[in-house]
């Protein structure tokens, strides 16, 4: 479904990601791991169309989307839950979802909205509340809900568990598992390595802008050197 071929990207002339390739088949899930500054977020932002591309290609269902504007990627079925959530903080829960479904008809909006409320009953209780006044966990749910309003086939999630209480992390991962069950392909950037390995079947590990490991979660768990990658990177 998604294929990165020798992708190099960054912000302006700065190169944050160099020569990264991986393949994400339909209905699969991939965890992108690595220390801070390894280029995980830049990789995700490149898939969404928010970075400068320095080389390589991004293919979505065999279509070259490397230079496509972000909106067109949303139309193709790619959605982003950005790092730090980046909600419309002074808009209510309902209104945030409205913006999420902006490209679709009012009928589709209604159906998708109900689906989001079914997945996150907490959001349904807080429909009229402004996004900025909710807890971190609720905000993360709303960020996911907003992305789901676009009817994505591929969901990109940047730091799902960052700053959340363990109970909220459980709720968010449960929702993610339900989406995976429904056939949504998921690319997850996560600093909680254990959680990510339990959730995703495939893993890529990045260090300083390049891939250091690529394989299944089982292989990753068995590979003791992998933890050295994190440790050595942390000491750099």
């Amino acid at each position: 479904m998604l294929r990165l071929e020798n992708l190099s990207c960054g912000y302006g002339p700065v190169v944050a990601v160099e020569d990264v390739s991986f393949d994400l088949p339909e209905r699969s899930s991939l965890a992108l791991l690595g220390p801070n500054g390894a280029g995980k977020t830049s990789t995700i932002m490149a898939i969404m169309g928010h970075t400068t591309i320095h080389g390589g290609r991004i293919l979505f269902n065999d279509q070259d989307i490397t230079r496509l504007p972000p909106v067109k990627r949303v139309d193709l079925g790619i959605a982003l839950v950005p790092e730090g959530r980046r909600l419309f903080t002074d808009l209510t829960v309902e209104e945030n979802l409205t913006v999420g479904g902006y490209r679709l008809s009012v009928q589709r909006d209604k159906i998708n909205r109900q689906r989001v409320y079914d997945l996150f009953p907490r959001l349904s209780d807080r429909r009229k509340q402004t996004a900025g006044s909710m807890s971190g966990g609720e905000q993360q749910m709303l960020a996911m809900g907003r992305a789901l309003m676009t009817e994505p086939k591929l969901l990109l999630i940047d730091e799902l568990s960052l700053g959340l209480m363990p109970k909220m992390v459980d709720l968010c991962f449960d929702a993610l598992a339900a989406l995976k069950q429904d056939g949504v392909t998921i690319l997850l950037v996560e600093q909680n390595t254990t959680r990510a390995l339990d959730f995703a079947e495939n893993v890529c590990v990045m260090t300083s802008g390049s891939l250091a490991f690529s394989g299944t979660s089982k292989q990753a768990k068995a590979d003791e050197n992998l933890f050295d990658v994190f440790i050595s990177a942390a000491h750099e």
Binding site: H50, D75, L80, L91, G100, Y102, R103, T150
Partner: peptide, 17 residues
């Protein structure tokens, strides 16, 4: 609503169309 969303966060609003 889209207008207010744009005031709140132009980049993200644009990425939702």
């Amino acid at each position: 609503i889209a207008w207010r969303a744009t005031v709140s966060n132009p980049t993200i609003a644009t990425s939702f169309g």
